[in-house]
């Protein structure tokens, strides 16, 4: 094993000191060293985007970043975006608009969606589609993902789900 390198990294607001092999991919450091398994791996070629996280505030593919490159930097993962008790509006919108099925691409897709809205507050459908062109989904056909991101940006979309209390009423 090559000599390990110390890396100080802030993840979801908490500071961590890691000793990692230089070849350690950020995604593996997050998943295996820090137990943040919400960030997934779906390919070998930086194609699928399942590993998308935010590095210093912008979306990157954590399978194509070495952990050692993140020394002194800040990472946000899906776990840091929101929890079941305190969902981020993008997470809420994915739930509301059925923007996921198997859920495997979902954390990366949500992180890419948030990154888009950080740059462009009211994106067009085409802007949304191009913003997630590096995130592959095999389940949804993207229709409801696009709707969810539109909704999270505060734009009008047709309702997708019905609330249970409406059923009871």
């Amino acid at each position: 094993m090559s000599a390990t390198v110390p890396v100080r990294i802030t993840v979801n607001g908490a500071s961590h000191q890691l000793d990692v092999e230089p070849r350690r991919l950020l995604v593996h450091a997050l998943r295996e060293e820090l137990g943040l398994t919400g960030t997934h791996v779906g390919c070998d070629t930086s194609s699928c985007g399942a590993c998308t996280i935010h590095l210093d505030g912008v979306a990157v593919k954590s399978c194509t970043v070495l952990a050692v490159q993140c020394d002194g930097r800040e990472v946000t993962t899906i776990e840091g975006l929101g929890s079941t008790d305190d969902l981020h509006p993008m997470q809420e919108a994915f739930w509301e608009h059925h923007g996921l099925q198997c859920g495997y691409c979902t954390p990366g897709m949500i992180m890419a969606g948030v990154d888009l809205l950080n740059r462009t507050s009211q994106p067009s459908e085409s802007e949304i589609r191009h913003a997630i062109e590096g995130n592959l989904c095999r389940c949804t056909g993207y229709h409801n993902i696009v709707k969810a991101i539109q909704a999270a940006s505060g734009q009008q979309t047709e309702a997708t789900s019905q609330a249970r209390d409406e059923v009871q009423a």
């Binding site: 398994t37 919400g38 899906i78 996921l100």
Partner: peptide
Amino acid sequence: ALHVGRSLKRKEDPRLITGRARYVDD
């Protein structure tokens, strides 16, 4: 039929949208 026929939000989703699901590699 109060519930069948309705587009209820999925019960599965809270764990999936927050990265708290457990796939094999997790």
